[in-house]
Computed example of a mutant assay.
Amino acid sequence: MKKKDTLLADAGPNTRLAHIGHDPHSFHGFVNPPVVHASTVLFPDSRAMETRAQKYTYGTRGTPTTDALCRALDELEGSAGTILVPSGLAAITVPFLAFLSAGDHALIVDSVYTPCRHFCNTMLTRLGVTVEYYDPEIGAGIEALIRPNTKLIHTEAPGSNTMEMQDIRAIADAAHRHGCIVTMDNTWATPLYFRPLDFGVDISIHATTKYPSGHSDIVMGSVSANGKYWPQLQEATITLGICGAPDDSYHILRGLRSMGVRLEHHQKSALAIAEWLEGREDVARVLHPALPSFPGHAIWKRDFKGSTGVFSFVLKADAPEKFKAKAHAFLDALTIFGLGYSWGGYESLAVHVNLSDRTIRKAPAEGPVIRLQIGLEDVADLRKDIEAGFAAAAAV
């Protein structure tokens, strides 16, 4: 191990983020890695070509640029290897395709990212995999759902939109007693605030579109595996022909450099807004794991090192027939908050959450769920914008 690598192993998160993934002295001292665009790679002779006796053989199998990002993510995750894929959804579906076969049974958390549910209910089912959804708060009780043919358990914490926390260690321990693979979508926390592989997860999944990018201009995903499952994951991505683009990899790597600083701001601002919302009469509930009032707070406090900028609240409404009208009035009155999907960028966003696809964790009865992404703007300005939304909703 190089001296710098030894020092970085004990360094703080922001120091590590500033230096991981690329050695400037490996390329003339430039602090950022070169962007290598490649499909064809030349070999020195026919024997080398036949045996593929060199590091790079074809563009889909990696370049110095994509490798720099993979090395950085492995450093953050503590993983044996990482693949890059074109989107966060692909980061979920590629491991499913890698590890599930016809006749297998998969357990998927009911608070899962909606496009993941669509993939499971359509393509995965068509391929002969039985899909069953489970309560996100089941914990060690998941063992009762494991069948002889259960192969994979997919987790996500906090859950999409409604933010339920999962006892990842308890689920992983139960899964491994039965030989099941555990995958986790850890996009919300990033490996700075939660490292899935340290809690027994086998495959850690991220939409690097979100906080690693940080600027709402890149779509990409990453999948990081432990040593046991890395070879099979790597083989699957080669077989599928899935790869990350060098320009996108470069921008994600650049985004990593400031991710720790940005997350601190997202965390501080989001908590300030969440605490303020808890005291409002027009809010039925605030769904944020870092709030002591949240049902999953104890798990968050025990396992996570921080919280980020995404949470939801239930807008109080006196009748179900008014839910949509109140939500639309609230959203349409916003100026600083944009109305858009995704999150993790510098700008604040808001969306009316659709929970109609849930099978276990149904939509709250008190009112519509509004998800907020708290960006890098000033809290005082965001509060004024939200107040305008509440005034419009109250007029419905």
Rank of each mutant, 00 (worst) to 15 (best):
M1T: 11
K3W: 15
D5A: 14
D10R: 15
G12S: 13
T15V: 15
H22D: 06
P24K: 00
P34E: 00
V35Y: 02
P44Y: 10
R61S: 12
R61K: 13
T63C: 04
T66N: 02
T66K: 05
A68Y: 09
A72S: 00
D74E: 15
D74T: 13
E77A: 12
V85R: 03
G88A: 09
T93D: 08
L97K: 14
C116N: 15
F119D: 00
N121P: 04
M123W: 13
E132S: 13
G139C: 02
G139A: 10
A144G: 09
I146D: 01
S160Y: 14
M163L: 10
A170P: 08
A175Q: 04
R177H: 10
H178C: 02
V182W: 03
W188G: 10
Y193A: 11
S204M: 09
I205A: 08
H206N: 12
D217G: 06
D217L: 04
P231D: 02
Q232L: 11
E235F: 11
D248K: 12
L253I: 05
L263A: 02
Q267N: 14
K268R: 14
S269M: 08
A272W: 02
I273K: 01
L277H: 03
A284D: 00
P292D: 00
P292H: 09
P295A: 05
I299M: 10
G306Q: 05
S307Q: 13
T308E: 07
T308Y: 01
S312P: 03
F313I: 10
L331C: 10
D332A: 11
L334V: 03
Y341Q: 15
Y346M: 15
A350H: 04
I360M: 05
I360G: 00
A363Y: 06
P364I: 04
I370R: 07
I386K: 06
A388N: 13
F390Y: 07
